[in-house]
Design a binder for these strands. Structure first.
Length: 631
DNA sequence: GTCAATGTCATTTTT
DNA sequence: TGACATTGAC
C-alpha cells in the first residue's frame, strides 16, 4: 500500500478503488480515465496483501486488452502473475480439462464463424429448405442469441412456426457439432456454464482456483457471460468489474447493459466507484464528446472533465463528394506530417468497412497506411486451409475440416465422391474421414486413398513443427501455389511462411501441444503491434480501447453515422451515438470530423445531410477553422 | 470436375 | 460499385 502511495500518482478516486476491501465492487470508468492502470494496481495491491497471484483472474473481451493488461501486470509480477485472458480463452482452457463430462473429447476443435456458415449451409441444403427464407447469416445470429440468452428451445409453445423451423435447423446444427467433436464460440461459454451448473464439485474447484475476479468492459457482457461470472464469484464474492455505459457498442451482438443493474442487485453490498477525470483528450475534444453523448438516456450521471489544455478547436469540414472527402483526409495527413506528427499517430475512422476503399485510393502511393482488423490473419484462406489440415490430424471426427481440404489441392474428389462418402459415413456411424476405409472396399478412388494415407501418416508426427512442414509439402499445397506463380499465390506463400514462424514460436513454449496451438489460432488475432510508421485506418468499432494524437472521422452524415438502419429505432440510435462518442474520445490532441453532400453507396449516388449528432456544430461553425483552399 | 459467366446483396462483429 | 455465390457450359 505504501509502495503504491509513494511511487505512483493516482487521483483520489483511483486510489480509493485500488485500496478498496476485497469485496464486490463496480468501477464506472469514463473514456481515458486510466482504468487499466487502476485494475493493474489493484491486483498489485491484493498481491501485496498476501493474495496468491495465480488466484487472480482478469477477464477481458479482446486479445488486445488482454495483452495490454498482461503488459501492465508484468511490470510488478515477475515470477508469478495473475491469470489474464479473454472469456473464450478461459473457457477453452476449462473445457480442455473437462470436455469428457459433457460429451466431447479433450481434443475438440473450435469452429469459427466461417465454419459455422459452412455447416449451416450444408444443413439447409440437406433439409431442403430455401435459403431465401432462412438466410444462413441470420440463422447464425439467431442461434447465437438462443445460446447467449439461454433461451429454452424446448418451450415449444412460445414460438411461431417460422421459429419452430429455425429450431429444427438449430437442433441439427447442435447435433452436427457434437458429432464433429467441435464447438463454436458461443458453445465455449455455454458449455462451461453447463459444466458448472451440473457439477458443483467442478465449479467449486474453479471457485477455489480463481478466488479473485476482475472483469474489463463489463458493459459488453451478455447474459450467459454474466451467468458464468456469477457462478464463479458466488463463493468468495471477490469480484471487481469495470465498465462505461456510454461505451457500450455491441448491443447488436448481445451485450446487455442491464447486467450493470443485475450486478448491483446481485451484489447489494458492492461499492461503486466513478472515474471521471480524463487524462487523454484536450478540453475542446472532451467538450464535443459530452455535447454528443448528453442526448442519450443515462442511468448514472457522470461528467467527464480534464485538467488538460483547451487545445485546438475540433474541425468540421463539409465536402461536395466522398472523393473530395477522401482527398481532404490525405491533405490533413500530409499537413500534420509536415508539422512533425508521425503517421502512426494519426487514425482515420469510418462507420462501415466499405468506406475505406475510397480513402485507400487517395492515400495509396502518397502516405503509408494500414487497415486495422481488416482480415484476421487466421481467417485467410490459405491459413485456414493449413490449420484445417492440422485440425483434422488432431481430430478425425471434424467433418467441416475434412470437407474444406479434402480436395485442396485438387485430388479429383468432387461432389459425387463426397456424396458417396456421406452415405457410407451415415450408414456406419463414422466420420467422413473414417468412412474412406469403407468406401474403398466398394470403389477405388485414388485421390481419396492418397489423402487418407497422408492424414494417417501425419497423425504419427508428434512435433508441431514437423507436422506443419509435413503438411504443407506432402499435401502438395505449397507446390500448388508455386505452380500458379501469380502475385496472389506469392502472397499466400508468404502468409504460410508467417504461419510457420507462429508454429515455431509455439513449439518453444512450455505447452507446445497441437491443441494449444489450434486454440490460439481460433481465438487469437495475430495482429502484432505495428512497428512501422503507418496511418491507421479502421471502423469506429475497431477503435474502441485505442487512442491517437490525431483522429479523423469521415462520413459524419445522417444515414452513415447514424447508420440508415438505425434511424427509426430509438435504441439503435442511442447505440450509434455511443459509437460516435467512442470515436471522438479516442482523440488526444486534434480531431477532424468530415461530412459529404454526396457519396457513392452500394453503387448509387446518394445525397446526405450532416449527421444529426453534429449538425449544430457544423451549422454554428462553433469549432470550425475556415480552410477552403483545397479542391 | 473445373472454370467462367451471370445473379444478388449489400452494418457494425471483441471471440 | 464490387465481392461472393450459384449456375451453366465445357
Amino acid at each position: 500500500m505504501t509502495d503504491i502511495l509513494q511511487t505512483h500518482s493516482l487521483n483520489d478516486n483511483q486510489l480509493k478503488a485500488v485500496l478498496n476491501d476485497d469485496k464486490p465492487m463496480i468501477i464506472f470508468a469514463g473514456a481515458g480515465s486510466g482504468k487499466t492502470r487502476v485494475l493493474a494496481y489493484r491486483m498489485k495491491h491484493l498481491i501485496e496483501l498476501g493474495v496468491e497471484p495465480r488466484s487472480i483472474l482478469a477477464i477481458t473481451f479482446t486479445n488486445k486488452s488482454a495483452k495490454e493488461m498482461k503488459r501492465r501486470v508484468s511490470e510488478f509480477a515477475q515470477n508469478e502473475s495473475p491469470v489474464v485472458g479473454t472469456f473464450h480463452a478461459l473457457c477453452a482452457r476449462i473445457l480442455r480439462e473437462n470436455a469428457d463430462i459433457i460429451g466431447y473429447s479433450s481434443h475438440f476443435v473450435i469452429f469459427d464463424s466461417g465454419d459455422q456458415k459452412v455447416m449451416i449451409k450444408r444443413i439447409i441444403k440437406e433439409m431442403d429448405i430455401s435459403t431465401s427464407m432462412y438466410n444462413p447469416s441470420k440463422l447464425i445470429s439467431t442461434f447465437s442469441k438462443y445460446v447467449r440468452e439461454m433461451i429454452n428451445i424446448d418451450d415449444i409453445d412460445q414460438f411461431t412456426l417460422r421459429q419452430k423451423n429455425m429450431i429444427k435447423i438449430f437442433r441439427k446444427y447442435k447435433a452436427d457439432k457434437l458429432q464433429s467433436d467441435g464447438m463454436d464460440f458461443d458453445d465455449l461459454i455455454s458449455n462451461v456454464v453447463l459444466l458448472f451448473t451440473n457439477n458443483p464439485d467442478i465449479l467449486q474447484k474453479y471457485q477455489e482456483r480463481y478466488r479473485h475476479l476482475f472483469v474489463d468492459e463489463f458493459q459488453d457482457t451478455n447474459a450467459i457471460q454474466y451467468k458464468l461470472l456469477s457462478l464463479l464469484s458466488k463463493k468468495y464474492r471477490s469480484i471487481c468489474v469495470v465498465g462505461d455505459d456510454d461505451q457500450s457498442i455491441y448491443r447488436f451482438r448481445g451485450a446487455d447493459i442491464r447486467n450493470i443493474d443485475r450486478f448491483l442487485i446481485d451484489f447489494k453490498d458492492a461499492t461503486v466507484f466513478k472515474l471521471d477525470q480524463n487524462y487523454r483528450s484536450t478540453k475542446s475534444i472532451l467538450m464535443l464528446a459530452s455535447d454528443v453523448i448528453k442526448k442519450n438516456f443515462h442511468k448514472t450521471k457522470k461528467q467527464l472533465w480534464t485538467d488538460n489544455v483547451k487545445g485546438d478547436p475540433v474541425k468540421f469540414l463539409r465536402t461536395a463528394t466522398d472523393r473530395d472527402e477522401a482527398y481532404k483526409v490525405l491533405s490533413i495527413i500530409k499537413k500534420e506530417h509536415n508539422n512533425g506528427v508521425k503517421f502512426s499517430d494519426i487514425a482515420v475512422f469510418y462507420r462501415t468497412n466499405s468506406q475505406s476503399r475510397i480513402i485507400e485510393m487517395q492515400l495509396a502511393g502518397e502516405v503509408p497506411y494500414m487497415i486495422v482488423k481488416g482480415h484476421r490473419f487466421y481467417d485467410r484462406k490459405e491459413i485456414k486451409d493449413i490449420v484445417s489440415y492440422m485440425q483434422l490430424v488432431q481430430n478425425g471426427e471434424s467433418n467441416v475440416c475434412f470437407e474444406r481440404i479434402v480436395n485442396v489441392p485438387s485430388r479429383k474428389i468432387g461432389k459425387k465422391t463426397i456424396e458417396l462418402l456421406k452415405i457410407a459415413a451415415d450408414k456406419n456411424g463414422l466420420s467422413l474421414f473414417d468412412a474412406i476405409g469403407v468406401l474403398m472396399q466398394q470403389k477405388k478412388v485414388s485421390g481419396l486413398l492418397s489423402f487418407y494415407k497422408l492424414i494417417k501418416e501425419a497423425k504419427g508426427i508428434d512435433n508441431v513443427v514437423n507436422l506443419f512442414n509435413f503438411i504443407i509439402t506432402k499435401s502438395g499445397y505449397v507446390d500448388m501455389l508455386k505452380n500458379k506463380g501469380d502475385t496472389v499465390s506469392e502472397n499466400r506463400l508468404a502468409n504460410i511462411e508467417e504461419l510457420r514462424n507462429a508454429v515455431i514460436e509455439h513449439s518453444k513454449k512450455e505447452d507446445s501441444s497441437l491443441e494449444v496451438f489450434l486454440d490460439g489460432a481460433a481465438l487469437t488475432d495475430d495482429s502484432d503491434d505495428a512497428t512501422d510508421d503507418n496511418v491507421n485506418l479502421m471502423t469506429l468499432h475497431a477503435s474502441k480501447g485505442l487512442e491517437f494524437p490525431i483522429v479523423i472521422i469521415v462520413g459524419a452524415d445522417d444515414g452513415i453515422i447514424p447508420h440508415s438502419n438505425a434511424l427509426i429505432d430509438q435504441d439503435q440510435m442511442q447505440e450509434e451515438r455511443r459509437l460516435f462518442y467512442v470515436g471522438i474520445t479516442r482523440a488526444e490532441k486534434r480531431l477532424y470530423i468530415l461530412s459529404s453532400e454526396i457519396r457513392m453507396m452500394a453503387g448509387m449516388m446518394h445525397g446526405y445531410k450532416v449527421s444529426r449528432f453534429v449538425a449544430k456544430q457544423f451549422k454554428e461553425n462553433k469549432y470550425f477553422l475556415g480552410d477552403h483552399k483545397w479542391k
